[in-house]
Simulated assay, not measured.
Amino acid sequence: MAPTVSYLTATRLLDFDSPSISNLIRDRGWHDLARVDRIGAVYDFVRNEIAFGYNRVDDIPASAVLTDGYGQCNTKGTLLMALLRSVGIRCRLHGFTIHKALQRGVVPELVYPLAPSEILHSWVEVETEEGWINLEGFILDAPFLQSLQKEFSETESLCGYGAGTDCLSAPPVSWSGGSTYIQKTGIVRDFGTFETPDAFYAEHEQKFGRLRGWLYRNIIRHWMNARVRAFRAGRLKPDASVAHLHGGETHAT
């Protein structure tokens, strides 16, 4: 008989026993909230108080994401899972790849050809009273998403700037008790569910190669983060290279 999976354990990546995470949860009073409100409070924190941005690698602990103060799908997902488990919410990871076109505009055109054709992606599945739901809409913080909506106001389908959606004007990203999405239309491959991000990264890793990996960690991601900050602040206009993606021809479903 297979052992029961708790979906509540701490791990190297889900280090919710670290002082920074323990103190955050105590200070916010999340344990005192009703179950649905606990999920919503943690979700809103990760979505909007952890800005959209790129960490050095995917498999960093939740406490490191909290310290950075920014993250992307995989790293913000690790933090979300750690916070949820710490307040007694069962959750797991669902792994995928997405088409690299979804990062176009954030990745400078000069280095875009160096990017792998598929990028490792994940969302968080959370157990509610109605069953398991998918949480992906936390990736883009509200100010960044609002900048996207302003600059691409004439389209509903967008694959670029970290978004993969067919309803850009009103994507399902706010917590209301159900699933949320912001990169769903860019999915290429489905790897299934994993109890922890540790297990996911033990089987799957982003294959950059040694040189491209070094360039990404030390140069390219800083360039990408600068572009994200500039776009969020309205100082960077959309690349013309992204405009032709509005029709969705690059979407993979």
Rank of each mutant, 00 (worst) to 15 (best):
Y70P: 00
Q72R: 14
E49G: 02
N48P: 01
G69F: 13
S63D: 04
S147D: 02
V107N: 01
A142F: 01
F138P: 05
D59K: 07
Q149W: 10
D59R: 11
D59E: 15
N55A: 14
L114D: 04
N55L: 14
L120M: 11
G137L: 13
P143I: 07
G77I: 10
I89L: 09
E127S: 07
Y112R: 12
G131S: 10
L83Y: 01
Q103M: 14
N134G: 05
E129D: 15
E125K: 09
F52T: 09
V65D: 11
E151C: 09
Q103Y: 03
L120C: 05
R104G: 08
D68S: 13
Q103H: 02
L84T: 04
F144G: 04
K76V: 02
K150A: 12
H94K: 07
K76N: 04
R90E: 15
F144L: 07
G69C: 09
I50R: 01
G95S: 06
S147M: 14
V126S: 07
L102S: 11
I98C: 09
W132Y: 06
E127D: 13
E127L: 15
P143V: 06
E151W: 13
L80Q: 07
R56G: 00
N134E: 10
L120D: 02
Y70S: 01
L114S: 09
C91G: 04
A101C: 06
T97M: 07
V57L: 13
S153C: 11
V107K: 00
C91D: 00
F52G: 11
R85E: 09
F96R: 03
L80H: 10
R56M: 13
I89K: 00
Y112D: 11
G105I: 08
E118Y: 02
N74K: 00
G77H: 00
L120G: 06
P113N: 04
T128V: 11
F52S: 07
V87D: 01
T97E: 06
L140I: 14
S86N: 14
V87G: 01
K100M: 03
F52M: 06
S147I: 05
A82S: 14
I60T: 10
